[in-house]
Design a binder for these strands. Structure first.
Lengths: 157, 157
DNA sequence: TCGTTATATCTGACATGTCAGATAAACAGT
DNA sequence: ACTGTTTATCTGACATGTCAGATATAACGA
């Protein structure tokens, strides 16, 4: 389609995006592990189940997080082994499974949400002036819709 | 230190940053695997060795990438098994090991660099207007120095 | 109903990332 | 030289992520 080449400025920003977000993910994940003994991925799943009201079909959960079903299935297996969620087959569609929080899962989420918000404040929000936050949001929205658009159609150019 | 709480706007941008960068990483990585049979991590290591002139001490490589030494050691093990790099002990310091590219490693890097740049153009740069790129860069620089500053001193607030 | 296709989820194999701790060499002070 | 400490790297255990393919159910058409 377009044969424009990447400028060195663009490359530098692209690389900075990678390294900075990777550091952030690592540091915040480390804190969550230390504060609440949950990985970022575990917390994400628990949070989405909580938001859905305590139980949700697996496929819907995967879609809302943005994961493929395999990744979610593995994570659910680990969460189930840890006793934080239950899986039961859906009454109206026996292919589907319904994920629900155990009491321990609810407790783990409660324990994690405060530290998680504080970590986001400390590592992320504290670094940015209001206009920078706004600019960042606009750029991310543009990227978000671009990526969504691209990944729907052809995998290659 | 500061007890400011995260606003819902800030939380939304934080979450968007996570999801968008994760999608980007996944899609670009998928393309690199398809185009050049290299993972993003493998390519990163090869590229840093190339930039260093074809060989580099392991610790310096880890620092330049921003990885801890364990992560690099595992990746080097895999790259060595694939025949893309060699490891030899440094002549001047027997604790240290020197990583160098094999001919296959050089070839793999050559094969990957074009597709990788095109992927960055297609998935990232194509989505952003020049001023958005600039704004994003400024926000990322602010985050970068903030993270670097924080991770040097105390691990907790 | 039967056969085919689509959908929802799971599984196994393997690559990757993180953590704690092992190993070994260099260094510093005595 | 001896001892303790620091530095550079590696290893093993385990959690995570990705891919291909298995399994089972639902949905649809002949």
């Amino acid at each position: 389609m377009s044969d424009k080449q990447l400028s060195s400025d663009e490359l530098a920003v692209w690389q900075r995006l990678q390294t900075v977000t990777e550091s952030l993910r690592r540091e915040v994940g480390r804190g969550l592990r230390a504060d609440a003994d949950l990985s970022e991925s575990e917390f994400t799943v628990l949070a989405h189940v909580v938001t859905a009201g305590g139980s949700i079909r697996a496929g819907e959960c995967a879609r809302s997080i943005g994961w493929d079903s395999s990744r979610l299935a593995h994570q659910l297996g680990r969460l189930e082994r840890r006793g934080l969620v239950d899986r039961t087959t859906d009454a109206t569609d026996a292919r589907s499974s319904v994920v629900s929080l155990t009491e321990a899962g609810r407790a783990a989420h409660r324990r994690a949400v405060g530290p998680h918000l504080r970590a986001a404040q400390r590592w992320f929000a504290a670094a940015l002036a209001p206009h920078q936050l706004q600019d960042l949001d606009l750029a991310l929205r543009a990227l978000e819709s671009h990526v969504q658009h691209l990944s729907q159609e052809g995998p290659s150019s």
